[in-house]
Design a protein around this nucleic acid. Structure first.
Lengths: 114, 114
DNA sequence: CTATTATTTCGATATTCGTTGAAATATGGA
DNA sequence: TCCATATTTCAACGAATATCGAAATAATAG
């Protein structure tokens, strides 16, 4: 990950509500979560939430897909992984630290088949 | 590390010049570096630099000490370590990921004895 | 088509941010 | 003491940020 992308990802996560959103997306796993469910869980106005989603997407930390009337957002673990690698490398500055952080999706949540 | 501290640390690192400053501090190791040396290395105005140092210090990512006319700034690896732990935990959401990132100071730079 | 639900877009606003220039402060040297 | 060096403080400024209310858009149900 390039420095410019790391800064973008850091900035995306450096906000209270947005960090909560991302945490929720991480917990939701690759399946993702509807904007409405997140709005309800965090008690955020839908337009405010859209603003935060845009930030996360621009930083490469989230993806969207439409499903019926709902927009389903999901975390991009790959980018988070890249950020952790960047920070670990730049924190340890060439010294042989721990192998580097790694980020994998939470266990796939089993949903009742629709 | 609490969420509020993580947000503070993320925000402190989420800025181009400030991230450069921190990277430089990390490379300098526990010995630290004078404000002037950093200003020269990054071509930043001294007052701008003071502003960024304040942010890093408030976030717990740097410390200062005076030495003669110079102020010597050093990275707080402990806080960086805490941030990496926080992100790793909140990224993997309970799933057994890699042991967690760890951040140790870079090898002590051997300076020619004054 | 009309109404309802889910989300986004737009405009406004208060706040915070990063940078600058000028002046102040602190330390050490002549 | 007077001067140079190193850094901070202060005031100002434009730009970006986070939030809100109102209106617009997309999709489905009736």
């Amino acid at each position: 990950m390039e420095k410019i992308d790391a800064v973008a990802a850091l900035a995306a996560l450096a906000q209270d509500n947005r960090l909560d959103v991302f945490r929720l997306l991480v917990q939701a796993g690759p399946e993702g979560m509807t904007a409405g469910a997140i709005a309800e869980a965090l008690d955020l106005a839908p337009n405010t939430l859209t603003f935060h989603f845009d930030r996360l997407r621009t930083a490469g930390l989230a993806t969207v897909r439409r499903e019926g009337r709902s927009m389903i957002y999901a975390a991009r673990f790959e980018t988070m992984n890249g950020l952790l690698s960047f920070l670990t490398e730049n924190c340890c500055a060439g010294a042989p630290c721990t192998p580097a952080a790694s980020c994998k999706p939470a266990r796939k949540r089993v949903k009742a088949p629709a």
